[in-house]
Each structure stands twice: as C-alpha cells, then as structure tokens.
C-alpha cells in the first residue's frame, strides 16, 4: 500500500498532476487540527467556569486598558500567574479562565521582561504609579522599563468611549444602557476621584484630564475581582493544575 502510494509512478505521482485536488487535500489537512481544538471551546457552553465577582471594566479602566495596548506594555509584562508555588508567592493567586471572560483582546503576554501584572491592583498607592510611569528609575532604581512622562501631559481622549461600550455590548459584555449612554461622564468622575487621591498623597495637581489617570485606574483594578472571591472562599478554584504538585 505504502509502495503504491509513494512510488515514483504511484498514486501520489498522479496527485502531483492535479494541483486542484492537491490543494483541496492540503486544505483539509490543515483544517482538521484547528477544528478539533476550537470546537469544544467555542461550542460547549460552560467550557469556561464563570466567576460571579468578575465584572466588566469601568469606562475609565477600559480606556486605560486601551492605552496599555497602544503602548505595548504587554510586550514586557505578562498577566497570567501560573499555578506554581513560586509564582503564587511572588504575585498572588494564580489566574483563572473565568477572570478573562471580558478580555478583548486577552493580554496574557509571552514575555516577562518586567514582572507579571495580573495581581498588581492595590499593591501600590496611586502616587507610586504616577511617579513610576513618569520615570521608573525614580521608584525602582536599575529598572529597565521605558519612561512615560507624556502620560502626565497628554490629554485623555474619551470621545470613542460610548462606541467602545456599545461594540463590546454587541459582543456580549453586559454593560447597562446607562453605562453606555453616560460612559464619558462616568469616566470623568472616576478620573476626578483618582486625581484627588494623587493630590492627597502629595502628587501633582490637575491630572484628571490626563492619560495617566486611566492607566492608574486600570492597573489598580487588575486582579482585584478575584481577591474578594478567594477570601470569600467561593468556588473559583477551578484551575486545571494542582498547585502543590507543581515543582
């Protein structure tokens, strides 16, 4: 059989005379693997365990997330704590699938030039982040992170926010009508609150219209949804890997 197929005048030889058939067979060959992997994950409902406390991003956080994407912070920072003891020790509770249901796109990253940020929310005061973004070496000597002083100067552009929320709602993120319509006002209020706190901590004034407040809002939210869950001891620990078994 094998002989007949690949001999120099065998079946494969004839196939080489029919590029169309050859192309069709190639297409089938490359589709099989992908389909087998996707279909369960996309069709089977509940393939991702929902976690009750995980909520969509607020408008300002969403804006900060989009700045994070635009700056390419994900090229140096992962957001995916693996279920190893050393990672849990270093970063906190390992990441769960259910935490990422509103992540469009996912930002797990593939490189840790800097530390994982999945649990960075609440780790530092707002002002620390402002100083750190302005010049990382002011808070972390020897840091190799790029400075982002322009974030303290560039105005925050909120004009796309209502469309963003609307599109995300189309895709299934449960934003209310109120949030979609008043997205800009909500974001302004959030920005105001952060800017006041920065001032209270002795930081620069008037940041409420700047990009930095959006980034701070986003960073401070990261990983905090689940922290409440794990202390409440709810059934969020649905991860595949046994924590203790990891080396």
């Amino acid at each position: 059989m094998k002989r007949r197929f690949i001999k120099k005048d065998g079946i494969h030889r004839r196939l080489e005379g029919w590029p169309l058939v050859f192309t069709v067979l190639t297409t089938i060959a490359i589709l099989v693997g992908g389909l087998v992997e996707f279909l369960p994950l996309i069709l089977v409902k509940g393939s991702v365990d929902k976690i009750a406390t995980v909520e969509p991003w607020t408008p300002l956080e969403l804006e900060g997330r989009d700045i994070y994407i635009a700056e390419g912070c994900n090229t140096c920072h992962s957001q995916m704590v693996r279920p190893f003891r050393h990672e849990i020790e270093r970063y906190g509770e390992y990441s769960k699938a259910g935490e990422t249901v509103y992540e469009r796109p996912f930002l797990w990253g593939s490189k840790r030039t800097g530390p994982d940020l999945a649990r960075v929310g609440g780790k530092y005061p707002h002002l620390w982040h402002v100083r750190h973004m302005e010049n990382p070496r002011s808070t972390s000597p020897n840091s190799i992170m790029p400075p982002y002083p322009h974030m303290l100067e560039n105005d925050l552009d909120l004009s796309d926010l209502p469309t963003k929320l609307k599109r995300l709602r189309m895709l299934g993120t449960p934003y209310s009508d109120d949030e979609v319509q008043n997205a800009i006002e909500i974001a302004r209020e959030e920005a105001e609150a952060i800017a006041r706190e920065v001032e209270a901590q002795g930081g620069p004034e008037g940041l409420e219209t700047k990009q930095i407040v959006a980034i701070v809002a986003y960073l401070q939210r990261l990983g905090t949804d689940i922290q409440t869950t794990s202390t409440a001891g709810s059934g969020a620990s649905s991860a595949p890997e046994d924590v203790n078994a990891s080396r």
């Binding site: 994950l41 991702v48 935490e99 249901v101 509103y102 469009r104 796109p105 996912f106 599109r167 895709l171």
Partner: peptide, 14 residues
C-alpha cells in the same frame, strides 16, 4: 481601533 470577536481563553487559543 477594534475589539476581537473572541474573548479571554478563546481569544488566546485562536
């Protein structure tokens, strides 16, 4: 600017 039709784990797999 656009948002992918997949989210989270599905987005990662795709």
């Amino acid at each position: 600017k656009s948002y992918p039709i997949y989210a989270g784990v599905q987005d990662a797999l795709v």
